[in-house]
Simulated scan of single mutants.
Amino acid sequence: MTESIVAQGGTAVAGEPGRGPMVRIEDLRRSYGTGAAAVHALRGVSFEIPRGELVALKGRSGSGKTTLLNLVGGLDSPDSGRIVVDGTDLSGLGESGLLELRRDRIGFIFQSFGLLPILTAAENVGVPMRLRRADPQEREERVALMLSLVGLGDHARQRPGELSGGQQQRVAIARALANRPALLIADEPTGQLDAETGLAVMRLLRAVVRSEGVTALVATHDAQLLGLADRVLELSDGHIVEHAKAL
């Protein structure tokens, strides 16, 4: 069994990419608004995620799950606290550094799929590599491999409107993996899918975490899906509670 996630205090020390935990969070705080009307989404959150694990994040609606994912992914900034992703302290990065981190080391999967309707499945998967200006042959080979990995090798030329919801989410997973990210961040990736399709997508996420050697942080409220995670973190009243996976 891999090292468990640690809900802890202490100081987060930035290391080198490829070493130490994939995610290290220290005393993270984020509020919206001011005075009596302020909403305190995160109240001193601290935890670590070891490399190679699929970690589920649960909590009631409005508990701060999306806030936490946006902070870890460099899409938002905390009021205070420290975030270290793959050895990089996000507080030391400017906007260009954050853009590079999101492009090269983090893959995002959203509930709404986020596919471009005028592009084929293959073209959608290739978008991140085009942004990185990858060699065209390398891009084509990687796109074909990723579509095959998610079971859509025969659907490369179809557009999102010609695919089912489950197939669209598989394309989104393939796109998130295109640039070989170290970390996958998924916000309710099965929220628009029926129970059976959602379970299949979550099983796929677990499989690609293993096959691609990535770490995944997935927000979900589905108890059946939580059972597929290596660990579960629960957000409650702005704090993190850790749940070891049941044996």
Rank of each mutant, 00 (worst) to 15 (best):
V55L: 04
V55K: 03
A56H: 04
A56T: 04
L57K: 11
K58H: 12
K58Q: 14
G59I: 11
R60P: 15
G62H: 11
G62Q: 15
S63T: 07
G64W: 06
T67F: 02
L68Y: 08
L69F: 11
L69G: 04
N70K: 08
L71C: 08
G74K: 01
L75Y: 06
D76T: 05
D76A: 03
S77G: 13
S77D: 05
S77L: 12
S77Y: 02
P78S: 14
S80H: 07
S80K: 09
S80G: 14
R82N: 07
I83Q: 01
I83L: 08
I83P: 03
V84Y: 02
D86C: 13
G87N: 06
T88P: 06
D89C: 13
D89Y: 10
D89H: 15
L90K: 05
L90T: 04
S91T: 07
S91P: 05
S91C: 13
S91G: 12
L93M: 11
G94H: 09
S96H: 15
S96G: 14
S96Q: 15
G97H: 09
L98S: 03
L98T: 09
L99T: 13
L99V: 14
E100W: 04
E100A: 09
E100M: 09
E100S: 12
L101Y: 01
L101F: 03
L101H: 02
R102S: 03
R103V: 00
R103Y: 00
R103D: 00
D104S: 11
D104M: 01
